[in-house]
Simulated scan of single mutants.
Amino acid sequence: MATVDIRQNVFYEAFEYSYNYGSYIENVMLVTKGRQLGYGCNLKLVRSIDLSSNNLFGSIPVELFGLFGLRFLNVSHNCLVGEILENISGMTTLECLDLSKNDLSGKIPQSMSNLTSLNCLNLSYNYLLGSTPSSTQLQSLSKDSFIGNAKLCGAPLRINCTKDEESHGSTPVHKNGDES
């Protein structure tokens, strides 16, 4: 997943089995954000990491954003802190990203507007601030992707940004306890 494989006809022996009476190809049903996707002969296309609800602490490892072939990433419901790094823009094949219900702070990097394959995003219930990156890609997503970030403004949220919020943001407020 650290590279993007542009070859279309890659054969993966690990997913195909032959027997005396025929052959068998594995099938996987992947459910992500309410969508059920089936993978059979195209199982090699599944590039997913789900680390949700693991009580992870600290910042998001920079190496995670170096997995350029990743299509689905879920690290929601943890205790991750810090900012979303600018190098997230290299994850050009990312289709679904869930960083919700952590303690992330700072601005949403403008570089996220380069994630043109992204059609599912959840940054809700963090401490993000400032304006949402200006791109049709991110601003066309549901406002539910951004709710619970009291100091976040701009489309698709109904909160307009003041000039001060757009340029500097403000200091995040931290949690005092556990969420229900």
Rank of each mutant, 00 (worst) to 15 (best):
S59P: 05
F146N: 04
R35M: 07
T132K: 09
L30Y: 03
S167P: 00
I108R: 01
K163T: 08
L73R: 13
S18N: 13
L138W: 00
L94P: 02
R158T: 04
G22C: 06
N149D: 01
V75R: 10
K101R: 15
G69V: 01
I6H: 11
S170K: 10
Q8E: 12
S100N: 04
E63H: 12
Y39M: 07
N122V: 06
A150K: 12
G130D: 02
E179P: 11
V75E: 08
G66N: 09
K163G: 04
S59Q: 13
T162N: 05
R71H: 12
I108W: 06
N102Q: 06
L70P: 07
S131I: 03
I49Q: 10
S18D: 03
R35G: 00
D144T: 07
I60W: 06
L152W: 04
L43K: 01
S170C: 13
P133L: 01
G169P: 04
C79Q: 14
Q8W: 07
K44R: 15
M1G: 09
V31H: 00
H168E: 14
S76F: 03
Y17G: 14
A14I: 11
F65L: 03
Y125N: 07
E165G: 02
L121A: 06
L67R: 10
S134N: 14
T92S: 13
I159P: 02
D178A: 13
T162R: 04
S18Y: 08
E86T: 04
V46E: 06
K175G: 08
N176Y: 08
E13Y: 14
N42M: 10
L43Q: 00
Q8I: 10
N119V: 11
I84N: 08
T116V: 13
N176A: 15
S89A: 13
E95N: 10
K44D: 00
P172C: 03
L138Q: 06
N27V: 11
L45K: 14
N74D: 15
M91I: 05
T3V: 15
G169S: 09
K33N: 15
F57C: 06
P61T: 08
P133V: 06
E63R: 15
H174Y: 11
G40E: 11
E83Y: 00
G69Q: 07
V75P: 12
I88T: 01
F11G: 12
